[in-house]
Write a protein that binds this DNA or RNA. Structure first.
Lengths: 209, 209, 209, 209
DNA sequence: AATGAATGAGGATTCATTCAT
DNA sequence: AATGAATGAATCCTCATTCAT
């Protein structure tokens, strides 16, 4: 009896989660426009009108998808803080690669949203871009940690290049499927980024002298 | 009178072009689902039914968009065939970067299509993936040209990495806008790919010995 | 504790009043169909389900609005019982005009309900029409008081004309806003009604002779 | 064959008219909110989506209802231009009364729209109010024609009073049905308005002396 | 006395597509 | 070569109402 009442009370949250699960699946497969409320309703078992009890509108729903997925994604990797800078970059690279493999939904939907340029920008796109910007800052800090001599522009370039590689490899994996060895490619990318840091540091020194 | 009839004939192609222009704009802004025939009709000034005179259905229209955009994209760059391998890679890198800057519609739409995973896959997606696969083969050949010692797996990896960088940098430019110096990043990427080729060649030799 | 429980008890009435306030506002702005429970819920701050605790259904709610508004409206004026018949008519006219100015909600909603002709007639419409019918009887009695010689048909006509003027002037005020001097127009109307009574009395005598 | 093709070509207009007929009926019975596109669709036999070929949206549809009804209404009466002013007023009064009896839809819907006070005012309301304003101007001119001595304020008052009477009597007829002799009441109203003109002229003269 | 959650029916509107001309 | 008109299915979302707590 106590359980029943607890379950009843908790149903709100449970339903919300069921809706978000369904919406995440569908949105990461078909993008913003392709995610119809009806489809979500069928997938989660609740009537469409119930979705509107939990979310103001479709925009709100998909923004919530990004928000929740972001939390899960964040918890999947963390900046290591011991070892040489190189070791730490290598470790981080592996973590990011694994995170990409484990929860591709977030990135796939995010990239689709990011590529769109519709007149009224969905709130979800804005949220995803903010998340990306934060990640970029972390990458820049890691770059600074590794090559403290680099100037601001070089750090930006490095961080952008590092993230671009991650995005591109993710897409390669999405398209190529099992024929793509994401871990090996990320390993290569990690080493390339370290090389790039050295190269940029060199050219910085050259300019100074 | 003769002029009029000639113009009438010519209008067929002109209308087709107007429709494709509108559809390209919209599809590269909003993806496959977001491109409604009605919207295209409004943007190109022709009634929706006229679109169906020129194209069998929506799928056919968007496939035609990819087809035409691909032609334009192809004509924007060509594989150089003189100089050292390094020079040729560098030259090609610049050309690709410039082509991305000049006609981003093709890649933007292509990537959106590639990321989507809907049950009935649009013909346009299939077309884009084929184009991509061809490009990958060319990249592999360029890599073999540059480092003839590499084994098949290494060549694949290199071509995949080169293309991933291009995709990722394109996305960075799309999101970052003017704050991203695409040419400089592509230049960096070109050099990184050459380095990677050397590195992979080294490790191949190490394994052999 | 005693206070709390008392306040809890009192909240019942207070909530009911808050709901009725919101419903009155909305219904007099948008009519029967335009008054959605959700809108009322948002305006009064109570959840929709709470509205159903106080009222059986939407029909019941709007009927209650009419009922309460009618009470307020009634208390805003009373039939004077001294002076000459003319003075009493004049006094009543002013009172009605003032009541219209002070609480236009009742009449606005009432007239909207009266004009509608939907298959299932709302209870509120029925209530409003009854109130109107009673008012008409009172007007007829006032007319009889003033011109005792008039026959039944003339009395009906006079009462109808008097009320029609009031309705029409109310509408003029609603549409014209500040540019309409309702008191002056009601004053004119009052005098016209008295004239009409005399005129009808004359023609009655003419027919008799 | 010629007939068929003509009819086919004319179908657009015919469908538009069928839709407007149905919408007029429903809107004048149930007001703006009560007029659902689905109901109109059922009444006119065309699918709901066809209504959107002819009208941009519901607002546009109901505005078109007012526009068309207004044309029909206008053609139902015209200002007479011979006889004494009194005769002309009397004649006009009869015409207005008959027009009210013949096409009550326009006025009923118009009054419902006029009474509403919703945040975003329907275009149809705006149109009805413009029509009303024009009618008021005509009434004012008739008043000036009859009592040239009246000052501007008195003319406004007179025109407002005349129109208020018409509105009020229309409502009385709507509510009272057959028990209300609209022609007799309008006749009374016409005479009252003439009396009022004299009265106002008198008081104007008094003030002057 | 109140409310969070749910729900089926219906709201307006857009969809891709067809067809007669 | 083109288009006005039509159409059924689907879109997002709101409706009045219920019910367990």
């Amino acid at each position: 009896m106590a359980d029943t009442s607890r379950r009843r009370r908790a149903n709100g949250e449970a339903s919300r989660a069921k809706i978000l699960d369904a919406a995440t699946e569908i949105a990461s497969e078909r993008g913003y426009e392709g995610t119809s409320i009806n489809l979500v309703s069928k997938r989660c078992g609740l009537p469409a009108s119930s979705i509107y009890w939990h979310f103001a509108d479709k925009d709100d729903l998909i923004a919530a998808v990004i928000e929740r997925s972001f939390g899960q994604w964040l918890s999947a990797w963390s900046m290591p803080d011991d070892g040489t800078p190189r070791d730490r970059v290598a470790e981080m690279t592996v973590q990011v690669a694994k995170a990409l493999l484990e929860s591709p939904d977030f990135l796939r939907l995010g990239l689709m949203l990011a590529l769109e340029r519709r007149p009224v920008e969905p709130r979800a796109r804005e949220m995803y871009l903010q998340v990306r910007a934060q990640a970029q800052i972390q990458l820049r800090e890691a770059a600074m940690d590794m090559s403290p001599d680099l100037d601001a522009a070089a750090l930006d370039q490095l961080a952008t290049y590092a993230m671009a590689g991650a995005d591109g490899l993710f897409i390669a994996k999405e398209i190529g499927g099992d024929s793509v060895d994401l871990l090996a490619l990320f390993d290569l990318h990690g080493r390339m980024v370290i090389d790039a840091a050295l190269r940029l540091a060199e050219s910085t020194r050259d300019e100074d002298s």
